[in-house]
Amino acid sequence: MSMEKELKKLENYYVTKPDGILTMYLNTDLADPEQQGGEWKIHFKNGMNNFDHYLMESGDKDEKRNFRAIKEKLETYIQDYERNLSKSLIVFASSDGELFFAQPVQMPVKTEFFWEDHPVLDQLHQLTEQFPKTGVVLVQQENVKILEAELGALQDTTHYELDLNTEDWREATGPHQAQATMGKGGKNPQKEEFEDRFRAHQQRWYKRLAPTLDKMAKDRNWQEIYLVGAREEAEEIESNMNKPVKEVVNKNLLEHEETKVLNEVVL
């Protein structure tokens, strides 16, 4: 489910006592100077204990029992999450068992805890505005890799290759194979011939690719698009697209690991 649909669902979710909804925004970024000693674990523990004490003093045994059921479930989730920390973790969990939304995100949040009859969505709204659903198109001659991200996190990767026999773009199903080279100073007549041919037909070939990117952007509801690659190639694609491009990034990142690309281009 897209974040837009998740938000609509969360905006309309309410419970009545003795049920409640736990909202947690937890900063777990180890690069944060204030998190070097794993302080996020202390913040999590204190947050849970504060609600525990509050509900104990309230005297509502049913509500206290319901909260503790969520607390136990969340503690189990955190044990797994700790093995692969992101910068932050956002959780909305209801004691009626109908809602458990846990979203690791690759941007910092302000650590906050709420126990209400509804999810507290202020920070999530801010994040979706700052980091909307995004398409990052990495282009390198006859290879194009498309990264889809939401809240700065990778959601999907698609790879297209130009079939030089048919001169059509096709979605690649196997691992990407880069063009072979002869090393520094060496000559590769095949590669040179290919590059000459590519330059001669580049405009026409990228014009054929642009409608595919436009359709993908529409179908997947991209709010922002980045084109990454040699400026001439990226701008050629941009000139043939109907969808607006937020930024052309003049870097060759096609072979880089996807999350590193997002960190460099989007975050």
Rank of each mutant, 00 (worst) to 15 (best):
A93R: 02
L74S: 07
T23K: 02
M24K: 00
F51Q: 13
T28H: 01
M48R: 01
N49T: 01
G38K: 08
E34M: 07
W40T: 10
Y14S: 15
Q79R: 09
E75V: 03
G37M: 15
T76Y: 09
L26I: 11
R65G: 06
G37F: 14
D60F: 04
I21A: 08
E39D: 11
K61Q: 13
I78H: 07
K17F: 03
Y77N: 11
K41D: 06
I70K: 03
I70M: 14
M24F: 03
N84D: 15
S94F: 01
G38S: 13
E72Q: 13
P33W: 02
E39Y: 01
S88Y: 03
L22C: 07
S88E: 09
F44D: 10
D60R: 07
W40K: 08
S94L: 04
A31W: 02
E75L: 01
G38I: 09
E63P: 00
K9S: 09
Y54S: 15
M24V: 12
D52E: 05
N46C: 01
Q35A: 13
I42A: 09
A31T: 10
I70F: 00
D32C: 06
I21G: 05
D29S: 14
K73L: 11
P18N: 08
D80C: 07
L74P: 01
R83L: 13
E6H: 12
K5I: 05
K61L: 13
A93Q: 14
K5W: 02
D60G: 10
E39T: 07
I21C: 11
G47M: 02
N46D: 12
S86W: 00
